[in-house]
Simulated assay, not measured.
Amino acid sequence: MNIQKTISEYEQFCKWTNILHQLNDSDWYRPVKEGKASIAEIIAHLRNWDLHLIHVVIPSIRRGEGMEFPDFNSYNAKAFEYANSGVTKDQLLQEFTSDRMKLIHLLSNMKSEELLLETTANGVKHCPNTGEPYSLLYIIQEFIEHDGHHKKQILGVLD
């Protein structure tokens, strides 16, 4: 795992989201597919997970504890609620960018030993899909894939 490449790739999605400032409100709030989240909700959802990494996961890693993740559905529901609370598109995009860049800065200033330290995620030592041991860098790579999934969804609306 190349640490700087991974962190740079994580930052790239943040830069890509700048194109979303051009969206009209109809596209911003339209679900990416029937029964799915809107672009606004997706951005709020991604921001919420970045905040979780900043405020919960990284401090936990630094204390030598495992990573803890909340119930996804209820955590995502809070993000969706925020996206529909009246926050403007530009404000939400600015908050997402600001928080993602805070996270990038934190990751960039961590020692490689901290990023690569084998740890647990909700008590589990290895990813059930790959068998790889969990580390903060591994989780960031999973978040990059997660960003890519949502980017495809968003691009489907923009086409």
Rank of each mutant, 00 (worst) to 15 (best):
T130M: 03
L115C: 06
M110S: 10
V57N: 04
V87H: 08
S85H: 07
G86R: 10
H45E: 07
M67L: 07
V157I: 15
N109T: 13
Q4K: 15
G66T: 07
M101G: 00
K152D: 11
D27S: 15
I139E: 08
H149E: 13
E41P: 04
N76H: 05
E65I: 05
N48M: 15
E118H: 15
L92S: 08
Y82N: 10
L23T: 11
N122C: 08
E114R: 02
K5V: 06
A37Q: 13
H126C: 12
D25V: 01
D90P: 05
N109I: 04
R47Y: 12
Y10Q: 03
N18L: 12
F96P: 00
E114I: 09
P31R: 02
I54E: 08
H21T: 07
S74C: 02
Q153W: 11
K151S: 05
V57F: 01
Q91N: 12
S60D: 11
K111M: 05
H21M: 03
K125R: 14
V157Y: 00
R62Y: 00
A79W: 10
Q12F: 09
D71I: 11
P128G: 01
K151Y: 08
W49N: 07
T6N: 03
H52S: 01
I144R: 01
A77L: 09
H21W: 00
E113P: 00
L137M: 08
V57A: 10
E118I: 04
T130C: 01
V32E: 06
N129Y: 09
A121I: 13
A37L: 14
L106G: 02
F13D: 06
E81G: 03
D71G: 03
F143Y: 14
F69L: 14
L155M: 15
K78N: 14
R100M: 04
D71M: 04
H45I: 06
S108F: 03
T88P: 07
V157L: 13
P31S: 03
G123D: 09
I43N: 06
A44N: 07
I104M: 01
L92W: 13
G66Q: 06
G131M: 06
E95Y: 12
G131Q: 07
S85F: 11
E142M: 14
F72K: 06
I39H: 08
L115R: 07
P70F: 09
Y134A: 06
E142I: 12
G148W: 06
T120A: 02
A79F: 09
Q141F: 00
K125F: 05
S8M: 06
M101S: 05
S85R: 10
L106N: 13
L93N: 04
H149L: 12
I39A: 03
L92D: 07
Q141M: 12
N18F: 11
D159L: 11
L103P: 01
T17S: 14
T130P: 00
D90E: 15
A37D: 04
E142R: 15
E113H: 00
Y75Q: 10
L158Q: 02
E81P: 00
F69P: 04
S135T: 15
S85K: 11
K5P: 00
T120L: 07
K78C: 05
G156K: 09
A121G: 01
E9F: 03
